[in-house]
């Protein structure tokens, strides 16, 4: 259950829907998401995407979103950034985020042991965001995307860089052997990658990789230069109509359940690409109320 969804200055919605190839293979949806709002317009949103090759990754991702929301709540209880309305500096956040994700991983080890599973069978990625009217704290392990719309010029910008391998479907998981190496890098960013965004946001989105090519400019091939690139650019024609619709829902006091039902329908087949997508699809969308 998502708690106190609509009591802060943000309206946050989310859905995780099964992909076409998982329906065909009779595999459960391996994505999970969870969010929680806190005082002063602060909140936590988490998305986890279970590895297709891991037998219990649906349970892994469900555990990780619960554990991450709890662990980052405890971090905020301790640091009180939301009560003091201040963002930590980058060094503080990088250390705190790494430590918090390590606690989530420790919980996952315990969960695996309790059920007599290999922890690798619970493999999943994780993206955790602490959002606020002041800025954003984000940390992640693996792929997926995150975006925010800055208040200043209404531009949509990427909030993270996904960790990707050489092969198109390779990434790293919270269960991977990443914790012994302090300076591990993938896709040019550290694992975990943690960022402090000090530009005030008016909207944000977290998504699993099943949604990425439908919502981000993320794969471009320049025929003249014969070079491929990942612009990692949130597509404003995708996000802006969605947040505009969220704003109108807020104005009309539409019940969150009703909004989320429509949101789920959208992820299932709101565009041709989403409808045909083989992978599971998760997106959490937040819009600041004026």
């Amino acid at each position: 259950m998502n708690e106190t969804v609509n009591s802060s200055k943000w309206l946050v919605i989310g859905a995780s829907v099964i992909g076409k190839s998982h329906i065909a293979d009779d595999v459960p949806c391996q994505d999970s998401h969870l969010y929680k709002s806190l005082e002063n317009g602060w909140g936590i949103a988490v998305v986890a995407d279970g590895a297709g090759s891991a037998a219990n990754s649906d349970k892994g991702s469900a555990f990780v979103v619960e554990a991450a929301v709890m662990a980052f709540s405890q971090l905020l209880d301790k640091e009180q950034w939301h009560l003091h309305q201040t963002l930590p500096d980058e060094t503080t956040w990088v250390l705190a985020a790494r430590q918090t994700l390590k606690e989530v991983r420790a919980g996952l080890d315990f969960f695996a042991e309790e059920n007599e599973w290999e922890v690798s069978s619970l493999a999943c990625t994780v993206i955790a965001m602490i959002y606020s009217p002041l800025g954003i704290l984000i940390t992640h392990i693996g792929d997926g995307r995150a975006a925010f719309q800055q208040k200043e010029d209404k531009k949509w910008l990427a909030a993270m860089t996904p960790h990707k391998g050489t092969e198109a479907n390779e990434t790293v998981f919270i269960t991977s052997a990443i914790w012994q190496v302090e300076e591990l890098e993938l896709s040019g960013v550290k694992v975990p990658e943690s960022r402090v965004i000090t530009s005030p946001p008016i909207a944000f989105a977290l998504l699993s990789d099943g949604c990425e090519k439908h919502s981000f400019e993320c794969s471009r091939f320049d025929e003249d230069l014969q070079k491929w690139s990942d612009p990692n650019q949130p597509f404003s024609k995708f996000f802006t109509p969605l947040t505009a619709n969220l704003s109108s829902a807020m104005e009309q006091d539409i019940a969150v359940e009703e909004i989320e039902a429509k949101w789920e329908d959208f992820l299932k087949g709101g565009t041709k690409g989403l409808k045909q997508e083989g992978d599971d699809k998760t997106m959490v969308l937040g819009k600041l109320k004026y």
Partner: peptide, 12 residues
């Protein structure tokens, strides 16, 4: 408040 609609980018 309507159904959610959006436009997707062209990706390679």
């Amino acid at each position: 408040f309507n159904d959610f609609t959006a436009e997707s980018p062209e990706n390679f």
